[in-house]
Design a protein around this nucleic acid. Structure first.
Length: 564
RNA sequence: CGGGACGUGGCGCAGUCUGGUAGCGCACUCGGCUGGGGGCCGAGUGGUCGGAGGUUCAAAUCCUCUCGUCCCGACCA
């Protein structure tokens, strides 16, 4: 392919509104263009990389016996009412000319369960695995970072149908294996981590996380590699203070002390010997205040606390705190609460051993030596934010916390969707049973962006070979060089490679800069040295130095490098 | 949803405070030189200053409303 015929809308400057590296580079290199907030076109270059990414995914899905199909984006809202997911705020809704209510699918569990209900009759029909590449629509509160978070995106979504939990586990494991091979082949560095089931519901879930500073998620990883989890549900062993002997609880005066730091300093005790009161108001009809207790040096994790409460919440106002506890914020604790002051006390498990310094519910006073069970109580739920340096529960290996981009996930859904839509089968003894479902997603465009985040330099993108839009970029300098370039391109193309001959009339420097920005793995320069020495230069993107080879060996050298 | 910022040729920006004939760089077109890292010279094309309303002799500039986009906090491939 001649570059002069390609749409290569490269930009010299970073787009002004871009922050993420992948956003800047994919726009600058001419891969994508924005249509609106969270809405992107894939230009020809970008579409090639997207297509190659999807092809790797397709091959690995096919390899585990997952069958490709295609379902519509627009669904009757009634279908979503059956699972209650029509209430999700991210769901786009519309009405047709007859007044029928429709939704734009954000995922396809309902549709799969609908088809399973209609087509699966017997245990002999199971197991099944189906997948598609289909557009998803999500009314995101905040699209972000170019391709990293969009309102419309193509997802590879796969679904498994099994007769029982054991079958589901086998399908889930097969998908996990395929996912590892996919990210491996794509050249996307990733971690497989335990994750929250979120809006999908279900029993088990893992996320495939591409480490990147642009990531919105945080994952906890043990140094020995044995533990990896999203901080949304990560657990750890915190360091323990020396509690000393148990003593009766007693009040101490702490004038003007409102923070853990002040308290710890004032009484001269380790912050790990204090308990912190987090006071929140659940945003539901039930009303009331929740008092959540974590150790003084710890933080409550919002999502963990949301799960513990069973729904969203907001911080309590100082007025609400004064009214419920009869004391100012900063002196609040769980000991000696009056009847009905709070809806519930939630206690982080760390606090169930030892004695703590905590608010006395009397302004300017704290309590020494409060012990769980003796002096205060509450529902024990892990709500603690795991911190860097804490130890893995299993092996005691230290944890580090890294930002990452969620590029894929797998869920064991169970029977939630099949029950809602009546997806059942008859077993060997003629008894009707629920179908066990799993769902498995990958965002190819987000994956592409994650790879761009992980693999670039100051000159531009550096694509892993599997996802590069072209395999070889040839820059001829001069008339004779162009002839040689076309010959080399023809040879390589016949071998199945995608090759660009940059015949544009720009100066060599401009063309080199474009080739580097676009990030094609192998670049060939054909110039003066062809006539002088009969050699051409081959350069690997992202690797220092060039290799001069006789023009006749060019194709063989490239083919060897590419198949290596 | 809360908070902040920005909309001026295709891209990146100045001009706005203090109203007075819309500018710079890049890109693009033509001619010439150049040809292994965004090269040089010359001549050009292209903008209802996001939109609407208002104030004024006069609005990119002041006022009101509105639309759009980005970033920071709660949600997810």
């Amino acid at each position: 392919m001649r570059a002069s015929r390609l749409l290569l809308p490269t930009l010299r400057d970073d787009p002004a509104d871009a922050v993420a590296a992948s956003h800047k580079l994919l726009v600058r290199a001419g891969y994508v263009r924005q249509v609106g907030t969270g809405l992107w076109s894939f230009m020809p270059l970008g579409f090639r990389t997207l297509t190659r990414t999807m092809q790797v995914i397709r091959e690995e899905m096919d390899a585990i016996g997952c069958q490709e199909l295609l379902m519509p984006i627009m669904h009757p809202e009634e279908l979503w009412r059956q699972t209650g997911r029509n209430e999700i705020p991210e769901l786009f809704k519309l009405t047709d000319r007859k007044g029928s209510e429709l939704v734009l699918a954000m995922t396809h569990e309902e549709t799969i369960a609908l088809h399973a209900a209609a087509e699966i009759r017997s245990y002999r029909d199971l197991p099944q695995m189906w997948y598609q590449f289909q557009t998803k629509e999500r009314d995101e509160p905040r699209p972000q970072g170019g391709l990293l978070r969009t309102r419309e995106f193509i997802m590879k979504d796969a679904y498994s149908l099994d007769r029982d939990p054991e079958g589901l586990q086998r399908s889930y494991d097969a998908q996990a294996g395929a996912y590892r091979r996919i990210f491996e082949r794509l050249g996307c560095q990733y971690y497989e981590v335990e994750s929250d089931v979120g809006m999908m519901g279900g029993s088990a879930a893992m996320e495939y996380m591409a480490p990147s500073s642009a990531g919105e998620d945080r994952i906890a990883l043990s140094e020995d590699g044995s533990y990896a989890a999203n901080v949304e549900l990560a657990v750890s062993r915190p360091s323990l203070p020396d509690f000393g002997p148990s003593a009766p609880i007693h009040e101490i005066e702490t004038p003007g002390i409102t923070t853990i730091e002040q308290l710890s300093e004032y009484v001269g005790r380790d912050p790990r010997l204090t308990a912190k009161s987090v006071i929140v108001v659940p945003e539901d009809e039930q009303g009331g205040i929740v008092l959540a207790l974590v150790r003084g040096d710890h933080r409550a994790h919002d999502l963990k606390l949301t799960r513990a409460i069973g729904g969203p919440f907001r911080p309590a106002t100082p007025e609400e705190i004064r009214e419920a506890f009869g004391a100012e914020p900063g002196s609040i604790g769980a000991v000696g609460l009056r009847e009905g002051a709070v809806r519930e006390v939630i206690v982080d498990p760390v606090l169930t051993t030892g004695a703590y310094l905590t608010g006395a519910n009397r302004t300017g006073w704290h309590l020494h030596g409060a012990e769980f069970g003796r002096d205060f109580t509450g529902r024990v739920v892990d709500i603690r934010h795991v911190e860097e340096g804490e130890l893995s529960v299993e092996t005691g290996s230290p944890l580090r916390i890294e930002p990452a981009i969620e590029v894929g996930n797998i869920f064991q859904l169970g029977t939630r969707y099949s029950d809602a839509l009546g997806a059942k089968y008859l077993d060997e003894s003629g008894v009707e049973q629920s179908i066990w479902m799993g769902s498995y997603g990958i965002g190819p465009a987000r994956t592409m962006a994650a790879i761009a985040e992980q693999s670039h330099d100051e000159r531009g993108l550096i694509w892993p070979p599997a996802v590069a839009p072209y395999d070889v970029w040839i820059t001829p300098i001069g008339e004779a060089a162009l002839v040689a370039a076309d010959e080399l391109a023809a040879t390589l193309t016949a071998e199945g490679l995608a090759v660009v001959v940059d015949d544009r009339d720009s100066s060599p420097g401009v063309r080199f800069a474009d080739a580097d920005l676009i990030g094609v793995p192998h670049r060939v320069t054909i110039g003066k040295r062809l006539e002088k020495d009969g050699v051409i230069s081959i350069k690997r993107r992202g690797v220092e130095g060039e290799q001069d080879v006789p023009v006749g060996d060019g194709a063989a050298t490239l083919l060897a490098a590419i198949s290596a």
